[in-house]
Design a binder for these strands. Structure first.
Length: 426
RNA sequence: GGAGAGGUGGCCGAGUGGCUUAAGGCGGCGGUUUGCUAAACCGUUGUACGGGCGAAAACCUGUACCCAGGGUUCAAAUCCCUGCCUCUCCGCCA
């Protein structure tokens, strides 16, 4: 959420930035609502001041056993009027907040201006896509053929967009998650967190999933619990309504969780395989940073996520999302895209963003520079490090052999009892 | 799931309708004293949203905030209702 005062005094700038995002009209009603709200507020507050004063007078009269009935009668009317004004002011305030809650973050100046993902900018590439001397298969053929991946039974017990893993397939998923967590905790200095996989609505609001994107997540019937769409939600909300010390920043967490997404509106997209599932595992990196250097932290967070692909030997590229493709809460985002030989394209496997103070304002996440200092909003960042399911399929596709077996990348072997090659399950 | 006790500022803690603009203490900040530290003493103290104010800071001023949301009342930290959370005991359970 953007700051009300900031929007008010920088209205034309904010409008310009919203135009870059392709939603030029979103602030059309802002001034009118703002003026109305302040008018009602002033009037109500003036009357409340009067009521407070007179209430004291009434108390004084009563103490001296004098008659206060005419003042009481007067104040009864004033109170009725206050109630009216409060309702109107509350409604105006709610309208303005609703407007503000639905305004996305302001893109950083370095974000390429564009209308869609077509305008994303490639920043760098790593690794050389392997040359195959046979036709590389897709993971949805490789997995079932190896006997480690099953879509039919998943559809039976749950539905579309689920998968069941067997044997080395299940273990590979676990190996990848452990490998990633070890890398980030040992080499990159992150602290591991295992958060709840369900959160309340306040948390969903804090990171920006609510109110606008409720239909993207699963809510448990009859409760205020949401299945987390990403570990970003519970982990970023850990310090909601708290004040951190500047000297302890940045705070760096990594978390392995399951993630649940309704994928409403993605019908027909990535329907084959495990690219887009209702449930998947992800190792997430989250940082709480000083505003002063949050963009340096974004660079290092992105490099930390890239390290996973590098150690696994998976070719990838980094793209900077354009203003038209940028997520709602983000000021700047780099996507990591891994090479998929079956479709001959780079596919998103991680998304690393700086949210600046956008989430911090919603979640009331603050820090203080030294004792007695003023509290300021901190900056939040996060990125996948990485999506485990998509890494799983990238390993299968990139390391597949002509006979349908899959070579295990060396870094993973210690996590798979030294296994060097995945062969069909008997 | 059942019974009971609670939720007050950064922290502790008083407060059963109007002399509470939340007592007192701790902590923080500023000062006096001091060779330095400590102690003592004095002062000060949060957030949000308005107004003064045309930009920023400062200042002055108003309103709101005693878990949250409703209600009663001229007036609510205080009374009533609902919800959430914490603690104790019982039941159940990995």
């Amino acid at each position: 959420m953007l700051d009300l005062g900031f929007v008010r005094s920088n209205l034309s700038l904010v409008r310009e930035k919203m135009k870059d995002r392709g939603i030029a009209g979103i602030l059309a009603d802002f001034e009118a609502l703002d003026v109305e709200r302040r008018k009602l507020l002033s009037e109500a507050e003036a009357l409340k001041a009067q009521r407070n004063t007179v209430s004291n007078e009434i108390a004084g009269l009563k103490k001296q056993k004098q008659d206060a009935s005419s003042l009481i009668a007067q104040m009864k009317q004033v109170s009725a009027r206050i109630q009216q004004l409060d309702e109107q002011a509350g409604a105006a305030d709610e309208k303005l907040r609703d407007l503000l809650r639905n305004v996305p973050n302001i893109p950083h100046d370095t974000v390429p201006v564009g209308r869609s993902s077509e305008d994303n900018q490639e920043v760098r590439r790593w690794g050389e896509p392997r040359k195959f001397d046979f036709e590389p298969k897709a993971h949805w053929d490789l997995g079932p053929a190896l006997g480690i991946l099953d879509f039919e039974r998943a559809a039976k017990i749950a539905g579309a967009r689920f998968a069941v893993y067997y044997s080395v397939g299940a273990k590979l998923e676990r190996a990848l998650a452990n490998f990633m967590l070890d890398l980030h905790t040992h080499r990159h200095g992150y602290t591991e967190v295992l958060p709840p996989f369900m959160v309340n609505s306040d948390s969903m609001f804090g990171t920006g999933q609510l109110p606008k994107f409720a239909e993207d997540s699963f809510k448990l019937e009859g409760t205020d619990y949401w299945l987390i769409p990403t570990a970003e939600v519970p982990v970023t909300n850990l310090f909601r309504d708290e004040v951190l010390e500047a000297e302890n920043l940045p705070v760096k967490f990594c978390a392995w969780t399951a993630c649940f997404r309704s994928e409403a509106g993605s019908y027909g997209k990535d329907t084959r395989g495990i690219i887009r599932q209702h449930q998947f595992q992800k190792v997430e990196l989250v940082k709480f940073a000083l505003p002063d250097n949050s963009y340096d932290e974004l660079e290092s967070l992105t490099r930390n996520a890239e390290a996973v692909l590098q150690v696994l030997g998976l070719p990838y590229r980094v793209v900077a999302l354009s203003t038209g493709d940028l997520g709602f809460s983000s000021a700047k985002t780099y996507d990591l895209e891994v090479w998929l030989p079956s479709s001959q394209e780079y596919k998103e496997i991680s998304s690393c963003s700086n949210f600046e103070s956008f989430q911090a304002r919603r979640a009331n996440l603050r820090f203080r520079r030294g004792k007695g200092g003023k509290t300021e909003l901190l900056h939040t960042l996060n990125g996948s490090g990485l999506a485990v399911g998509r890494t799983w399929l990238a390993v299968l596709e990139n390391y597949q052999q002509a006979d349908g077996s899959v070579i295990v990348p060396e870094a993973l072997r210690p996590y798979l009892d030294g296994l060097e090659r995945i062969t069909p399950r008997k």
